[in-house]
Every structure is written in structure tokens, then in C-alpha cells.
Design a protein around this nucleic acid. Structure first.
Lengths: 139, 139
DNA sequence: CTCCGTGCAAATAGTTTGCAACCAA
DNA sequence: TTGGTTGCAAACTATTTGCACGGAG
């Protein structure tokens, strides 16, 4: 990991007042080190850590992703039921989900915006609107 | 359960060539007996069965809901990650999800339709578009 | 009579948690 | 020093599965 990536991760943690431990720095660097948005599962991030030569327990990956979400640095995206995805973009935006290989990506901006919002039941307000466009390989 | 409800359930099964066993009839009747659309979890449906004085094992509720989905009678909706919802409406439509109590309902027709679909990656086509509007109580 | 369907209990997968050791401040 | 963090293993929850029995056609 480059020093620049490390710094990005570091600042990202600082932004949420999270103590920069070795494990958090390792995960943060992998998540935002290159400035790209990323969609990971606990498993995939854990694998990435090992690939990078670091060592963080799977439980800590889970707990840390949860902490990042609580801190508003990431958001959890539910597409599949069997596992959770975590997105480094915390704002409300649509996703592509490839059923073929279970990968999640951002859908191109703007295109999938809702035409209008439905009447919300009395006493409620909209917390978030999840849009997941499921894709399959063209046959 | 009224004879009319029973007949509705019966026809519903027939439509998918599913053998009308006692258990399937019981579930089908609870699901579509009154002609209303319904959003259930395996647990909630199992509870409804017991409340109705019938007896179907939880495993069978799971297996049967899965069978109904495979047959195209229902669709599985993923909103929460921790559990699956099953919707008696099998077509593509938006949902309200009340975070407060975990209930799922249909959003009013038409309002939440997408303005346009984004450019889909080469070699893929849209299988389904899931729209879940998360609601929280107004504070 | 023949299979599909069912029930039970055990297996599984993803995720969380209790607790002792650790480390950043 | 000291309270927040981590690792491990065990706990948990939702769901699926193997297998013997039972019922629909």
C-alpha cells in the first residue's frame, strides 16, 4: 500500500473520530485508499486483507464494517438476503446487482432516479429509497 | 376458513400444477383466500397457520414458500438481510418498509416508477428492479 | 402402488457476542 | 493508566437438507 493510500485511509478514519488502530487502518486503506468507491462483503474484504499480507480476524472485519456504518462512513446494502454488502458511498444511489456472480456496482448517475415519490402513510417519512437493478447475462 | 377462501387457494395451486396437499391448501388459503395481496415471512405465516388451528411444520412452510416462488406464484423480497419476505404479487412493483416494526406493504401504484433505466452493461439485461422505500416514524 | 410431499432433527451459513489480552492516548 | 479494540471460540438466527414415513393420484 502506497503512503498516499495510507493517508487517505487515515483521514477517512479521522473524519469519523475513529481511533486509527492497525486493523482499522488496514481496512480503511483497502476501502478508500485509491479514492474509488467500493462494494464489499465481510468475506471479500477479509480476503483482500490477507491478499495484502495483513492479518485481521473475520470477526473484527464484521465489527469494523458495522462501526464504519454507524459512523456514517459507509452504508449497508441489502440485495441478496444471504449476505450483506457494504458501500463506501454513504449517500442514496441506485445499484446494479449481477445475479450471475453476486457482484454489486453503482448504477450510472441520474438515470435511475424515481419519477415521483408515492404518498407516504400518515405519520411516516422517507428514510431512504433503495433501488437495486438486477441484471442477468443476455442469453 | 370459508369455502370461498378454500376454493381460491385451491385454484391458485392448480394454476401452478402443485398437488393440493393439506399443508399447501392451508398455506394457500391463508395467503390468497381473501383475494388480498400479502407480505409474509416464514415465521409470520407459520404463526398464522397455528392461529388458524392448523398444523404445518416450519420447515414445510419454508419449503412450500420456496416452491410457490419457483412456480411463479409469489416473489421473494429482500429488504432486511436478516429475513426474507414473500409477496403474493409476483410482478415488479415498489414496496414500503416500515423500519419501526419490520412490516412490508405495497407502495401506491405508479408513483414510484423509475424515470428512466440506466445504460445496462454490455451483455446484460434487466431481470428485475427492486424499489424499497424505507419509512421511519415522523419525530 | 408409486412418488411426491412432509416432519423432524441435524446441518449450514452468515453474523454477533462474551471475555481475556492488548494497545493507542 | 485506562478505556476503547481485538481475537478467538462459542452462541445465534434464519434457512436448508437427509431420511423415514405418509398420503395424493
Amino acid at each position: 500500500m502506497t503512503p498516499e493510500a495510507l493517508e487517505r485511509g487515515s483521514k477517512w478514519l479521522a473524519r469519523a473520530d475513529l481511533r486509527p488502530t492497525r486493523q482499522r487502518l488496514s481496512l480503511a486503506t483497502l476501502l478508500v485508499g485509491d479514492g474509488q468507491d467500493r462494494h464489499v462483503t465481510a468475506e471479500s474484504l477479509h480476503a483482500a486483507v490477507e491478499r495484502a499480507g495483513d492479518r485481521v480476524s473475520l470477526a473484527t472485519v464484521y465489527n469494523t464494517l458495522r462501526a464504519f456504518c454507524d459512523a456514517g462512513l459507509m452504508q449497508e446494502v441489502t440485495v441478496d438476503g444471504s449476505r450483506s454488502y457494504f458501500d463506501t458511498r454513504a449517500d442514496d444511489h441506485p445499484h446494479f446487482y449481477m445475479e450471475e456472480n453476486g457482484s454489486l456496482t453503482d448504477a450510472p448517475a441520474g438515470a435511475a432516479r424515481l419519477r415521483a415519490l408515492p404518498d407516504v402513510p400518515e405519520g411516516y417519512e422517507i428514510a431512504r429509497v433503495d433501488v437495486v437493478i438486477r441484471l442477468r447475462k443476455t442469453s
